[in-house]
Structure formats: structure tokens, C-alpha cells
Simulated scan of single mutants.
Amino acid sequence: MLSRRTFAASIAALVTAPLLSACGGDSDAATGTGGSDTKKVGNINIGPDQNRVRGKKVDEIAALVPASVRERGTLKLGQSADASPPLGFYATDDKTRIGSEIDLATLVADTLGLKLDNEEVSWENLFVGLDSGKFDAVFSNVTVTEERKEKYDFATYRLDNIAFEAKKGVDWTVKEPKDVAGKTIAVSSGTNQEKILVDWSKQNEDAGLKPVDIKYYQKDTDYYLALQSGRIDAYLGPSPSAAYHVSSAGQTEVVGTLSGAGDKLQGKIAATTKKDSGLVDAYAAAIDHVIENGQYAEVLKRWGLTTEAVEKSEINPPGLPKTES
């Protein structure tokens, strides 16, 4: 596993390599930061001095927080320790947690008048922490599912999308299965996007069209290089990762997006709390507040996630269905 510093360095090395050179500038407007010592990859600030968008306490929203949490004065937050830019990863100082998830969680905590007490743990321990009361909330790319709704409450803050990433300048867009007929598409094995791509390929064959030529790569750098060399037409992966690579490397573009749940339901990412903890209404109200005042849009723009914005926070909306046994 890469160390935090090695991971940050690998991003910088990746986008300054000959085939994947960064094209972005260093404008403060693009990153929301300033200073001659700022560390950037393309237009993305990966240094420890983030100058985050900050909110202010709204008394009527803060009053929705249970008294025990208000008296404590902190919002105990759990986030996945995995490095997954632009959602959550470590800055170049090897210790500062940065990314869209911590930025949004900070805005929510500010609105609730609470100080953020953040801890990074393994994915499975996020839910263990909620169950035990160690965490008040998880902001860590958690998708709403019907199974999870049995134990947790959700307040949505982002769409759960996947994206087709292709070489910059291609005259091609993807909206439906026929658009990938006969194309060579890379995807990660064992993922939901692989399942969707295989299903689309079968639909094309059933309709008398060419199937998708599906390719698999072990590393992100492998499919980036395959895109540049023309060995594949596109890579299908998580939309945030595609947006980050597009912004940081400047050599590719997103040619189509769709719900990570497939054609039948729009997947949604949500702030997660233990069921009946009394916190979900406060989270939803805080998210709605920062949507209305424009700070939410600032954060998403900063990390290249504007296309995943929600118009308002929904509490416990329809989630991905349970997997049939």
C-alpha cells in the first residue's frame, strides 16, 4: 500500500509525465487558494493549506441537534482512510486530510455551530463506529441502499454517478447502450460499473449490434496510458475520479455519465448517521442551507464535481435495492 506522501507524490508524477502532462494554470479562482508555496496538480490544490470554504452557525438549524451533542460542542465524524481523490486523501504534508467530503462535512459542522472531530478508519469500521456511537456522522461516499436504511438514516448531498472518460477531443458521447456498441472500454473487475457495462454489451448483442470489447487493467496509470495511445476508446469508472483526472491531467474528457445504480434508479450519496440518533434532520437542514447560500456549489466546483450536485437534501430517499440471494 502506498504511504500518504508517496500517494500524493504519485499523483504529481502521473500528471507531469510526457503523455499525461498537466495543462491547468495556477489561478486562485480555480482552486480557491493562494500563496506562492501552494502545492497543486493542474488546477487542484493538494497542499495542506486548503483555505476551505467556511460557514457560520445558523441558530435555528443548530437547535435541531440533540442537546447531548450541542453540549459536547463537537461533531464526531468518520471518514474512510483510503486515498480516493477528489473525495478524500492526504495533502503533501502526509497528514492533512483534504477533499470534497471533508470540505462539505466542515460546512455542515460550521452551520450547526460544532467543531469537527474527524477520524479516518477502514471502510467497515465506519459502520462499526456509527453502531457503537463513536461517530455522529459519516461523510465518506456512502450510497443510500434499502439494506442500509434498516440501520442508518441518510441526508443526501451528492449524486452517485459513474462516467465514461475518453481522450480529449473525441467526437463521441455516451447516453445509451448503442453508443458503446463495438467500442473498446476498460473497466475495473468486480465493480458495479463492470456489471452495468456487461449488461449494456448484452443488450447490444440482443439488438443485433456489436458487443463491447471489455478490457481490464490493474492500475489507474495503465488505463490512462491506454487512452492516450488509442488502445481503448474509454474507461468507465467512478465519476468523481474521472472528474479529478480530467481537471488535474488535462488530457481526457468525460463523454457520458449515468447513475451508479444503472438505468432504473439514480443513486445518491448521503451523510450517514445511526438510525433514530436525532441528527438526520439537522444534517439535511444544514446541507440545504449551504446549497441555498452558494457555498455548496463553491466546494463542488473546487473539486470538479459540479455535475453531481443535488438541488436539495433528501432524508432516506429510495435506495439501491437489496441484492437477491
Results as ranks from 00 to 15, higher is better:
residue 239 S to D: 11
residue 243 A to E: 12
residue 268 K to L: 13
residue 264 K to N: 07
residue 247 S to H: 12
residue 229 S to T: 15
residue 273 T to W: 02
residue 252 T to M: 13
residue 241 S to H: 09
residue 253 E to F: 05
residue 228 Q to M: 15
residue 249 A to P: 06
residue 269 I to H: 04
residue 253 E to T: 07
residue 254 V to Q: 14
residue 274 K to L: 02
residue 227 L to S: 09
residue 271 A to K: 01
residue 221 T to M: 14
residue 255 V to P: 08
residue 255 V to N: 10
residue 223 Y to M: 13
residue 218 Q to F: 13
residue 257 T to W: 01
residue 229 S to P: 07
residue 267 G to L: 02
residue 241 S to R: 11
residue 253 E to M: 09
residue 246 V to P: 09
residue 244 Y to P: 05
residue 259 S to T: 02
residue 247 S to Y: 09
residue 258 L to T: 07
residue 234 A to L: 06
residue 237 G to F: 02
residue 229 S to K: 15
residue 271 A to G: 01
residue 263 D to Y: 03
residue 269 I to D: 05
residue 240 P to F: 05
residue 256 G to H: 06
residue 266 Q to H: 01
residue 268 K to S: 06
residue 237 G to S: 07
residue 274 K to W: 01
residue 259 S to H: 04
residue 225 L to A: 14
residue 247 S to F: 08
residue 243 A to F: 02
residue 223 Y to P: 11
residue 218 Q to P: 08
residue 244 Y to D: 13
residue 218 Q to Y: 12
residue 244 Y to G: 04
residue 263 D to S: 05
residue 241 S to M: 08
residue 241 S to N: 09
residue 266 Q to W: 05
residue 248 S to K: 12
residue 264 K to T: 07
residue 271 A to D: 02
residue 225 L to G: 12
residue 260 G to Q: 03
residue 225 L to T: 14
residue 216 Y to F: 15
